[in-house]
Amino acid sequence: MSELKDRARAKVNLTLHVLGRRADGYHDLESLVAFADCADGLTLQPGSAFALQVTGPRADACGDLTDNLVAKAARALTERVPQARSGTFLLDKHLPAAAGIGGGSADAAAALRLLARANALAAGDPRLVAAAQAVGADVPVCLLSSGCMMRGAGERVTPMRLPRFPCVLVNPGVPVPTKDVFTAIGLKAGESYTPPGKPADVAWPVASATADTWLAAIGAGRNDLEPVAVKIQPVIADVLSLLRQSNGCTLARMSGSGATCFGLFADDASAAAAVAALRTKHPHWWVEASALS
Rank of each mutant, 00 (worst) to 15 (best):
A73E: 01
A98H: 13
D238Y: 00
P175V: 02
K198R: 15
G102R: 03
I236E: 12
L115T: 00
G25V: 00
F165P: 02
V139Y: 00
C167S: 07
V206I: 11
G152Y: 03
K188Y: 00
R127M: 01
K281T: 14
F265Q: 11
A109Y: 06
D40A: 13
G25T: 02
G103C: 04
M1D: 14
S105K: 01
F89S: 00
T280S: 13
G47S: 07
G124N: 14
A34V: 05
A211V: 14
G219D: 05
A111G: 04
D64F: 07
V70G: 06
T213L: 15
C148N: 11
C261E: 04
G197F: 01
M150W: 08
K281A: 15
A51R: 08
A84W: 01
E155V: 06
A74V: 03
L69P: 03
R21L: 03
L264R: 01
L112H: 02
G100D: 02
T250S: 13
A184W: 02
A207N: 08
T158Y: 09
L14S: 02
K11D: 03
V81G: 05
A98P: 14
V18C: 09
G147P: 07
N171R: 09
P82Q: 02
R9Q: 12
V235K: 08
V141E: 00
A97D: 14
A123I: 10
R22E: 09
C148W: 04
A98T: 15
L225G: 05
D64E: 13
P126W: 07
D67M: 11
S208Y: 09
A269Y: 12
L4E: 08
R117C: 00
P166M: 06
L90F: 09
A118N: 04
A200G: 14
A106K: 08
A209Y: 07
L19E: 06
R253G: 05
R279T: 12
V176P: 04
S105V: 03
G263C: 04
A61V: 12
R85A: 13
V168Q: 08
T213Y: 09
L242M: 14
V54G: 00
W285T: 10
Q233V: 11
S257G: 07
T213K: 15
L42I: 11
A229E: 11
V275W: 01
K72E: 04
A259P: 14
P82V: 06
A118F: 06
Q133Y: 08
A269T: 15
L121H: 01
L144F: 10
